[in-house]
Amino acid sequence: MELEVRHLRALCAIADTGSLHKAARQLGVSQPSLTTQLRRIENSLGAELFSRERSGCRPTPLGRAVLSRARPLVAEMAALVVEARAAAGRAGGPRLRIGSTASRALAGWLRRLRQRLPGTDISLHVDVSANALLRMVAAGQLDVAFVHEVEGCPLQVPDGLSVRVLVEREPQFISMARDHPAAATPVVELADLAEDRWIVDPTVDGEWDGLRRVLGAAGLNPRVLHGDYHTAASLIAVGEAVAPCQPTSGPRDDMAIRPLRGDPLAVRLLLFSLPGAYELYEAVYADLEGAYREAASRAATYRHWLLRNNSPLLPAPVTCVP
């Protein structure tokens, strides 16, 4: 078996994330497929490149040696692709490449940008990993990235990126079954959820560490399930789990969304870009801010929270770019 660039890229992803599961999500492949690929690479070299531990995958001495040669090759290939795409973009007209973690503001943001920048090819790349999106901006694969940073879990920001803070501290609410006893109150005490199972997606950067920190500080050690939030919704609706959620989350007939007393869970909302094109990025930020205000005003529970906390987010009029 001859090693190809895709094999080297897979090795780098496993080393960077420390997990086959996270690496598979980053690469857009299934975990069994990536596991099989790694096994074939190791078989062709005649030795293990990673030691599998309970805490994740760690490079062996041979793995570190291979990675030291692989990383420059992968970086060079990525640079070649970026330069080729940039040349093609210049030939094909203006474009704007957006990256984002999941957000209710995305639809409104894209609508505003298309109104502001007619004739511009606007693309969207959504990823659960904020760190992966930041690496794509640094590599020139994205122009901007809208991400959230879990409180107490700083992002790994590459050198040279510019950042604008959209929201300094966005509270994370709790989603639960509509008939959950805690749903009868407008604000939920964390202790009232001590007997519940909590579900969290460990592939979202900082999500599990942030939740574990808050639960530990409250003296709680509830049962925790790991899974993606699409699966979580079905479990929450039938009362099998509760989960943190964005305050802009929309209402559902089978689910209640409530703030936590004291807002112990929070994130920062950030927009990253490469330096330059100041006027464009200011416009991109302005449209994102308008879209976020719109999403906040639509979510009744969040709107009430903003009013109670005298937030400057809500009073501003919601307008679209003409």
Score class of each variant (00 low, 15 high):
Q37P: 00
A23Y: 00
D16F: 02
F50N: 12
A47K: 15
T35N: 07
S19D: 12
F50G: 08
Q31L: 03
L45D: 04
L27M: 14
L45R: 14
S51G: 11
T36H: 04
T36W: 00
A24H: 04
L45S: 09
A24N: 03
V29M: 15
G46I: 01
S30N: 09
A24I: 07
D16W: 07
P32T: 07
P32L: 12
P32C: 13
G28D: 09
S44Q: 09
Q37W: 00
G28F: 11
S33G: 04
T17K: 11
Q26R: 15
L49M: 05
N43H: 11
F50M: 13
I41H: 03
E48M: 03
D16I: 01
Q26I: 06
H21R: 15
S51C: 03
E48F: 06
F50C: 10
R40G: 06
Q26N: 10
S44H: 06
N43E: 15
G18C: 04
L34Q: 02
Q26G: 15
E42R: 04
V29W: 06
L27V: 04
G46N: 06
G46K: 08
A24W: 02
G18D: 05
L20R: 07
K22N: 14
R39A: 14
L27I: 07
I41T: 07
N43W: 12
I41M: 06
T17A: 15
K22F: 00
I41R: 00
G28W: 12
N43K: 14
S19L: 07
S19C: 11
R25C: 06
L27F: 08
A47P: 03
T36G: 05
R40T: 05
T35H: 10
I41C: 07
R25E: 10
I41K: 00
N43Y: 03
R39L: 10
G46P: 06
L38W: 00
L49H: 05
T17V: 09
Q37S: 10
I41A: 02
L27Y: 11
V29G: 08
S51R: 14
L45T: 01
Q26D: 13
G28L: 07
I41E: 08
Q31E: 15
L45I: 02
P32Q: 11
S33D: 08
S33Y: 01
S19R: 10
F50H: 09
I41F: 00
R39I: 04
E42Y: 06
S51W: 09
A23I: 01
Q37R: 11
E48R: 13
T17Q: 14
T36L: 07
Q31C: 06
F50A: 10
S19G: 13
S30V: 01
E42P: 06
A24T: 05
T36A: 11
T35S: 15
S30D: 13
I41D: 04
E42V: 09
G18Y: 04
R40M: 10
S44M: 02
A24P: 07
A47S: 14
S19T: 14
A47I: 14
N43R: 13
S33C: 00
A24L: 01
L49C: 06
P32W: 08
L38P: 07
E42N: 12
H21M: 07
